[in-house]
């Protein structure tokens, strides 16, 4: 069936199999390979994209349910040749090794920076917390990195959050 959605600012109309996930639509049909499939079960975060500005696991979303949505993938983070500050910080802080979780980390961090409100580690839930390393670690724990670059991921995000 036909759906129309905005992907990185461009309208796309696609005929999709109703069993197809948003992730497979991006990777297999639209050639946007930046969003990664690590588990296909919403357990690793490698497929994280922004759906209408909020981070979401694209492997858990059916493509047909995305009709009318605005999707931002890692390919849409940079402004032309100018990297998103998170992308530049990830390079400077060596916040990745194999790079396979990186697009999801970046989209997740981009979404996270815009999310107000407390987390499980916020001392006073009535006060919007500063993004301390502890807050960043908590809020980024939906994105696994098997290379173990967390220390550098947190320092990269902290620099941008400042």
């Amino acid at each position: 069936m036909d759906i129309t959605l905005q992907v990185n600012g461009l309208p796309r109309t696609v005929d999709v199999d109703p069993r197809m996930s948003l992730l497979d639509l991006l990777r297999e049909r639209l050639g946007l390979i930046g969003s990664k499939k690590g588990c296909d079960h919403g357990q690793c975060g490698a497929c994280t994209v922004l759906v209408d500005g909020r981070r979401a696991n694209s492997c858990l979303a059916l493509a047909v349910a995305m009709d009318g949505s605005e999707i931002t993938t890692v390919e849409g983070l940079a402004n032309g040749d100018e990297l998103h500050p998170l992308q530049a910080a990830f390079i400077e802080h060596d916040a990745f090794q194999c790079g396979y979780c990186t697009p999801g980390q970046l989209c997740s961090a981009a979404g996270m920076l815009g999310e107000p409100g407390p987390s499980a580690v916020t001392p006073d839930v009535l006060v919007d917390p500063d993004l301390t390393p502890e807050e960043i670690r908590e809020r980024m724990s939906g994105n696994l990195c098997r290379c173990g670059a967390y220390v550098n991921i947190v320092s990269a995000i902290a620099e941008v959050a400042r």
Binding site: I33, G34, S35, V74, E75, L83, I91, F96, T102
Partner: peptide, 8 residues
């Protein structure tokens, strides 16, 4: 680094 952070 650049191709990894841009998804390319």
């Amino acid at each position: 680094g650049r191709v990894k952070v841009t998804g390319l």
